[in-house]
Amino acid sequence: MRAWVGPLAVAAVLALGGILAVAAITGPRAEPVAQTLAAELRCPDCQALSVAESRTAAANAIRAEISAQLAAGRTADEVRQHFVDRYGSWILLRPASPLAWLLPLLAIAASVGVLGLWLLRRRPAPVTEPAQVDDETRRRLAREAESLDG
């Protein structure tokens, strides 16, 4: 493998990351507010679907109400609150409490952190490899050792 391939790949991945970030920010995926709101509100007369996905009577009524309120100039937060006042926080498929979001994220971050600290903990100095074995041989040995295990 030529030496320039690695840096090129890193540069390409970084460039792609930039493109993706720009695509994520400016992308045409801005859904209509009504659609986003409908996907966040639970359909009262079915069990696990949002009103965006359901076609029951109540879901139809709530979608119509969302459109009407948005047309009347209310903001998304006001519309959300309108439904919470009437149905309770039960109507929100995305729980409003920050704890619901923070607890699992903290748990995962803490586990990754503990794992990272453990892996980076001081360890016995690495055994220096004999100089006379060249890279190619070492790679071949590693490959053959690996093809022996699963």
Binding site: P44, D45, T56, A57, A58, N60, A61, I62, A64, E65, A68, F83, R86, Y87, G88
Partner: peptide, 14 residues
Amino acid sequence: DDGSLAIDFGVTGP
């Protein structure tokens, strides 16, 4: 009702 009174009452379904 066009649907909005039912929502004001928090009706889940008749």
